[in-house]
């Protein structure tokens, strides 16, 4: 179980790091999302123990699983959710600013600021 989790975390982190190195901003955001989820899984793994649900009244004599990591990971997910929303908003602003600039000046690379057309990105 520990091994499987470690593998999943490393694969997620690896894919995230790979995506992060791309020039495309949306892929970069994807990389950040994968990496932050790898971190969330890592938190879960830090308190991995099998047992009953930790809800009062506690069953006597039985192992209960660690409730703290659940609280931590929930908080981390919420924070990650907020930061990813900010990141996406910022990417969108960069995109529109660059689009305006490209329309004004003519884009020197001949590409659109981000490789996908806007319709597909928003609809996905």
């Amino acid at each position: 179980m520990i091994l499987a989790l470690a593998l999943v975390i490393s694969v997620l982190f690896g894919c995230g790091a790979f995506l992060l190195l791309k020039r495309d901003l949306i892929r970069m955001a994807g990389g950040i999302i994968l990496i932050s989820n790898a971190a969330n899984l890592f938190i879960v793994s830090a308190g991995l123990s099998r047992g009953r649900e930790p809800i009062y009244p506690l069953p006597a004599g039985e192992r209960i699983s660690d409730p703290v990591v659940q609280a931590l990971v929930l908080t981390a997910i919420v924070i990650g959710f907020g930061t990813v929303a900010v990141l996406l908003g910022m990417i969108y602003r960069t995109y529109t600013a660059r689009l305006a600039k490209a329309v004004d000046e003519g884009d020197e690379t001949g590409r659109t600021p981000m490789s996908m057309p806007p319709e597909d990105r928003v609809a996905d």
């Binding site: 830090a46 703290v68 931590l72 930061t83």
Partner: peptide
């Protein structure tokens, strides 16, 4: 933002391991 988000993730991993 990207650099500091990576830093936060690393720190979060550190906190989780300390726990």
């Amino acid at each position: 933002m990207v650099v500091n988000l990576l830093g936060s993730v690393v720190f979060l991993a550190g906190v989780a391991s300390l726990y």
